[in-house]
Amino acid sequence: MFYTSRRAAAWCGLAALVLAAPALAQGKKAAKPAAAPVVDTEIQGALGRMANALKAIDSFELRADMTTEEVLDNGQKLQSSSAMTASVRRPNRLQVNVDSERRNRRFYYDGKQLTIYGPATGYYASVAAPPTTYAMLQAVADRFGVETPMADLMMWGESGVRLDGVTSAVYAGADRIGGEVCDQYAFRQPGTDWQLWIRRADPALPCKVVIVNTDDPAQPQTDAVFSWTPRSFTDAQFAFVPPADAKRIEISQAIAAKGGKQ
Score class of each variant (00 low, 15 high):
11 W>I: 04
12 C>S: 12
14 L>M: 11
14 L>S: 09
17 L>E: 09
19 L>C: 14
19 L>V: 11
23 A>H: 12
26 Q>D: 09
32 K>M: 12
36 A>P: 01
43 I>W: 03
44 Q>L: 07
45 G>V: 04
48 G>F: 06
48 G>P: 08
50 M>S: 10
54 L>W: 07
55 K>P: 10
57 I>C: 03
61 E>K: 15
66 M>H: 10
67 T>Y: 02
70 E>Q: 07
80 S>H: 10
80 S>P: 03
81 S>W: 11
82 S>F: 08
83 A>H: 13
83 A>I: 11
85 T>F: 06
91 P>R: 08
93 R>H: 10
94 L>T: 01
95 Q>T: 04
95 Q>D: 11
98 V>H: 08
98 V>F: 06
99 D>A: 05
106 R>T: 00
108 Y>S: 00
111 G>A: 01
112 K>A: 05
116 I>K: 00
123 Y>W: 03
124 Y>C: 01
124 Y>R: 03
132 T>G: 00
132 T>C: 01
138 Q>K: 11
141 A>E: 12
142 D>T: 10
147 E>Q: 13
147 E>V: 09
151 A>K: 07
154 M>R: 00
155 M>P: 00
156 W>N: 01
157 G>C: 04
161 V>D: 00
162 R>P: 00
162 R>S: 09
164 D>K: 08
165 G>Y: 08
166 V>R: 02
172 A>C: 14
174 A>H: 12
183 D>Q: 10
184 Q>G: 09
186 A>M: 02
201 A>E: 14
201 A>K: 15
205 L>E: 02
208 K>Q: 12
208 K>H: 11
213 N>E: 14
215 D>N: 15
216 D>F: 12
216 D>G: 08
216 D>V: 07
217 P>Q: 14
220 P>I: 10
221 Q>W: 02
223 D>G: 13
226 F>G: 02
229 T>M: 06
230 P>W: 07
234 T>S: 12
234 T>C: 07
240 F>I: 02
240 F>D: 01
243 P>R: 05
244 A>S: 09
250 E>S: 05
251 I>N: 00
252 S>P: 03
254 A>T: 00
257 A>K: 03
258 K>W: 12
